[in-house]
Design a protein around this nucleic acid. Structure first.
Lengths: 194, 194, 194, 194
DNA sequence: AATGAATGAGGGTTCATTCAT
DNA sequence: GATGAATGAACCCTCATTCAT
């Protein structure tokens, strides 16, 4: 019975599908309207512009990304070493499904659409905080040695993870590469644990 | 005196500059023609389409990328360990200047322009062969231990390097990240040398 | 306590402000509704169309224009010569504040919105009658000579006054031109008084 | 045989007709294209924007306005008094045919299209110079007295003439008013000649 | 070998008006 | 009386490509 925001949801849903499939530029408002069986004007009633519609779609995905990742972070039982691995794996596998987040990874976006940049920077900061927290907790608990500068390790880890997002998700090599993922993790953290 | 292909070269040169500056999509044939002081029709006389013109431009850059990298590979004197590092550093620093290669890294290209995919795959294979050769030479020379599976290390190394191309070049973080680059190299190859 | 027509008045008031500030075309029903904190549908409940709403607003201003001018006309004491001058000056200065009347002066209105034409013609007739009355009264009182055809002078005077409305009010040159205004008056009525 | 600028001329001609008939806003590029039997893109090949096309059309008319008026100015035989009258009459009657110049008179233009303002200001300056020249020549020749401040008279004259442009041309009252025009001229210049 | 005029499909956006509730 | 979601026609503009000369 409750039909509030019905149209709005339909539009977001259709836009979600199309943006993730064809990308921001190749998806026209015309097509979204047509597939949603709504008038083009109706889209503009709910969303001020194409960019705003896209932002809405991405916001949803980032929100979900955070929610799932948070579950891992709250786990009090597992060791820091396992938590680090678990966090990264979860992060990557959930991200695989965030089709429109991939779109924001597309580089030519960064040049012209500040709002996307903002969204990503905010998420990146959140991500970085989590990783550093896990590592620092590991040190506090005496689980990680400090033969290696922890800050540097964190920075390198983040740099690599962010780098892998493109080949993994945008270039659809997640499956090809995921076999190497564990190995990489071993190599990177070798010497980390005492 | 010889002016054969003069027009052709002028067009490529202008296109090179514009594509690398504004990207493929934001560069219009109109603008190329105007700056090259040629008629738009002339471009189409020499190049069947905008894509073909772009391909030509990128081919040139990849060719140069290979040439410079080859110099390092041919060095017979330095150790495999140094050669590995040298190769990677050279590859990355030359690539920093390959502005149109960056353009091919932009994700939405891969979805729609097969030729770009082909170009990159061919270069990737060449790259992978070089890295594996260096590592294998290190083993043959008894310089590298085999505590770790060499194939896996090579794959992981390549995976990471390819991943870093986007943040380094497309997102212009080369300078930010290059400070971490040596650290990463140390972490990755820890335990590699005997 | 009495709140009848509350909504109606609010809408007119907001429309008045917006039309006079941004003009008829640049003011959208959306904006009127938003600022009036009413639903767009409510505006259409009270006014059949945007035009009708505008007409209502203008009617109000013309009514005021007449009221103020009437005060001068009723003055029985001053000479016809002074009354003529006073009437014209009052008319112009009150009109300066009739922001939406200015809007009707904008020419492209006349081509398409008959109601505006009607409003203006009705006001013009009223205006003309007043001017002729003053002049004729001056003749009757023996204050004005008849070296010049009175009807012609009245017509010319009206023609000029109407002509000045655009530069004065719509083009905002009231202040620039008002210095010349007295001079013009002297020149026009030279030879009028005995 | 010579077909250079054929299309361009056709477009200008059609635009001229439509702009002068329906006004700038009510004339769409679509309609111009359709009537000119050209693709919409073709219009944009020749003119960067709708505004530019309109400017071209108006420039033509102002140019013609100047040309015709110049003939009067060059007349060395008639008296300054006659020349003044002749100049004003010519100016007004030619202007009657400048349908798109009328369009620029429409007030809401001034708010947003600077180029129109520029065109008009330039023409106004030219016009003012001519009028002052004629009057000054009359003084030099001893034809005009100086019982009245000449500068003031010129300014008032210009103010009135510019004011009449709207009622005359935009509101199509040229014919209604032109009967009064001579009378106005007499009244204004009364006392001017010795 | 070169030109440049012409094309036409497509893109994002605006807005007065309608109507079921 | 009042609402606000929905409409759809219209608008200006872009650009890769074609083709007669």
């Amino acid at each position: 019975m409750i039909k509030i925001d019905d149209t709005r949801e339909i539009i977001i849903s259709v836009a979600d599908r199309l943006f993730s499939r064809f990308g921001f530029h190749k998806t026209s408002m015309d097509e979204i309207a047509k597939i949603a069986r709504k008038a083009k004007g109706s889209i503009y009633y709910h969303f001020p512009s194409k960019e705003d519609l896209f932002r809405e779609v991405v916001l949803k995905e980032i929100s979900q990304l955070k929610n799932v990742s948070s579950l891992v972070l709250q786990n009090q039982i597992i060791s820091s070493s396992d938590k680090l691995k678990e966090y990264v794996l979860t992060r990557m596998s959930v991200m695989e499904l965030s089709l429109n987040y991939h779109e924001t990874l597309k580089a030519d976006f960064f040049e012209h659409y500040k709002f996307v940049d903002d969204l990503r920077n905010e998420f990146d900061a959140w991500d970085r905080t989590n990783l550093k927290n896990i590592i620092n907790q590991g040190i506090t608990d005496g689980e990680f040695s400090i033969n290696i500068n922890i800050d540097i390790l964190a920075d390198v880890l983040i740099m690599i993870l962010k780098g892998l997002e493109i080949p993994f998700f945008v270039q659809n090599r997640y499956k090809d590469y995921s076999t190497h993922f564990n190995d990489m993790f071993v190599i990177l953290t070798r010497g980390l644990s005492k």
